[in-house]
Amino acid sequence: MIVVRKLVKRFGLKAVLRGLDFNVEAGEFVALLGPNGAGKTTFLRILATLSRATLGEVSIAGFALPAQAAAVRRRLGVVTHLPLLYGDLTAEENLRFYGRLYGLDSLNKKVAEVLKLVGLFERRFDLVRTFSRGMQQRLAIGRAVLHDPEVILFDEPHTGLDQEACAMLDNVLREVAARGRTVVMTSHDLMRVSELASRFDVLSNGVIVASVKREQLQPDQLLAFYRQAVQQDSSSNPIHLAQEENQLR
């Protein structure tokens, strides 16, 4: 479903991605882990067609980037730590607006379905700026799945959410994954991704340094796997590793 070969991304002289290879099969839920500055967000922005690679090949659902970007965007849903929603529009108006941009038919029915999926149907006439951060993030997932994409990219969706909001978000993520969609999610929260993902890839210094499937790993082994992968790279931040260890405990 996603094929990436020798991907390089440079900002000026600084190379953020350095010949990255990455494959995802249809229906997989891949957690992309890595320290700050490893290139996770840059990589996801390239997959999302929001940024261009300097070198390398990327194809999603058989369509090459950047040549067939519009076809890729039609099959892609993206959730970032920002909701990409308009505060002065209601939840329903936001979804209807994005639905029109995607040229969706039966928009009323689809908007109602998605609002029910993310648990915001009762609040559909409320302005988004009155929503809590967790509610906005749930609506952001609704926006991302409105056009029923084959691939969904999540860039640290739990950022800034309290425990209750994270738990509700996880339920929505499970629901989305249960529909057989291909998911790639970056996160620093090892505990959460250990319960959600079917595969764990570690990105460090612009390349994938390790990859393991969920069935090959006990949940309590994920931190050790992550530490081992990242410690191969001497530039990784030990403070960050300690923080993630605390989260897992």
């Binding site: 999302a48 929001l50 076809a71 965007r73 990409l84 505060g87 002065d88 941009l101 040229g103 906005q136």
Partner: peptide
């Protein structure tokens, strides 16, 4: 600024339109 707020410009750019 409305488009920059909450990352809405990215939302527009993700749409499969010219």
């Amino acid at each position: 600024a409305i488009e920059k707020d909450r990352g809405c410009m990215d939302g527009l750019l993700l749409a499969p339109v010219d």
